[in-house]
Design a protein around this nucleic acid. Structure first.
Lengths: 250, 250
DNA sequence: TCTTATTTGTTCGTATGTATT
DNA sequence: GAATACATACGAACAAATAAG
């Protein structure tokens, strides 16, 4: 007979709760029983239940709130299609203001993006990629994106001031087609994109901006856009909760 | 003056330990002081230190072992280049037996792969992609890959028996260039690849095979290879510890 | 091989703090 | 203000794995 791997109680509670949620006993949006109640149900201490719930919170499956209770998250997973994302047709699609808008609308949610533009000192890693001195001023376009009011993605795009300084790219509204269309008009149309994907814990500011927990995980995507001739014209750093996204590459 | 966000003690300990590791006080491979020692150093209970170390373990930064102590992980981050990964030149490079081998060797580590082949009932999701009935037998090529003896990736490749049954693809050694070269000779050379990336907790068997903890995270990559004419010729499911890999797409 | 000390894993009971209702 | 509910911390105890003799 198969050997049963002995599992600690809190892991068993995790499995039981996960199963109960999957079975529909606690549907998305529902409030779970309070910790003392679950503790009695499973025959463990509240501390053990608390630990199990903390694990599920880290996975993004539930959201415990002090004084209120623990609710089951309704997480529509957002699919990010990387192929054709920068195609002009997609960028300029009617009603949509870019690939992100289209992705969120496709799920029946309301997208929103707050954009701010500033000149900042280039972070070391970005400077290296852009081919400028570390600390040298570059243009930073920061976008905070949300779906139905829930923040789901942060993106900071760094561009060399030598190319985009004084152009419409340095303004909040870059016009139809966005940054890439303007870059094309300046003779720096991106022809190649490289995206590097990592998973890590969020930084403190990301915890605040994305309203997530410190022990959850984020995708950290660095996209480098290269123009004809090999000149790097943009470095885009994207941060998004890992449990809410699915990345597709072709 | 700025408002200091009050942080729980265990999060402060996490930050302090992370800093100490980054500063080189505890270099890769080093044994950390025992939990009671750290508890005294930070002025907290062992339970708090234990919790902090559990977080660092989940991140893949340290590896606590009962009876032994807690060591700082030393396996470097492995970069997986997706572009050109299936190019014949890369696959057939001298000394390397594929993209994975080259990636691991590039880090100065010794790659190893254990391959097994079997006919299995197609999982529902795979069957849908391959265009066969769920449960219908398909060829499964399972590869367990490791670097310096540490398992770092599982890959299960599903192929339609109608195409590959009885060919060399159904054997453990597929010959120079591997599966894709053989598929080409059969008239089903893959011309398009789509990879879908998700992050999730590992399944029980993955925990065992990859020697990781239940509360760590894995990349779950599904690669679909399409031949000329739109026929799906392979579905490859790849699972790898998320903290050990960096994915690059072009 | 057996024993013992060390070290981490887990659970318990209790207490206190903080946010919400 | 009071009740409810989750967050964190402490101290203690025992289990399990490892290492040393």
């Amino acid at each position: 007979m198969p050997v049963e791997k002995p599992r600690s109680e809190y892991r068993q509670v995790v499995a039981l709760l996960r199963a109960a949620i999957a079975d529909g006993e606690f549907p998305p949006g529902a409030l779970l029983p309070a910790e003392p109640v679950l503790a009695e149900r499973f025959g463990v201490t509240r501390a053990t239940v608390n630990r199990a719930l903390a694990m599920l919170r880290t996975e993004g499956l539930v959201r415990p709130e002090r004084g209120r209770g623990t609710t089951v998250n309704e997480l529509p997973i957002i699919r990010r299609e990387s192929a054709g994302r920068q195609a002009q047709g997609v960028r300029e699609a009617e009603g949509s203001r870019g690939a992100f808008d289209a992705e969120i609308r496709g799920l029946g949610l309301v997208p929103e993006a707050v954009v701010s533009v500033a000149e900042v000192a280039a972070p070391a890693e970005v400077a290296l990629l852009l081919g400028v001195e570390a600390g040298e001023p570059v243009l930073a376009r920061v976008r905070e994106m949300s779906a139905d009011g829930v923040p789901v993605q942060l993106a900071t795009s760094y561009l060399p001031l030598g190319i985009v300084g004084g152009t419409r790219i340095a303004e909040v509204d870059t016009g139809p087609g966005g940054t890439y269309s303007r870059l094309g008009e300046l003779g720096y149309a991106p022809v190649e994109f490289t995206e590097t994907v990592r998973v890590r814990t969020p930084a403190e500011d990301e915890v605040v901006a994305l309203r997530m927990d410190e022990d959850q995980r984020v995708f950290a995507i660095t996209r480098v856009a290269v123009a004809e001739g090999g000149r790097v014209v943009e470095v885009n750093r994207i941060v998004a909760p890992a449990h809410q996204w699915e990345l597709v590459f072709s």
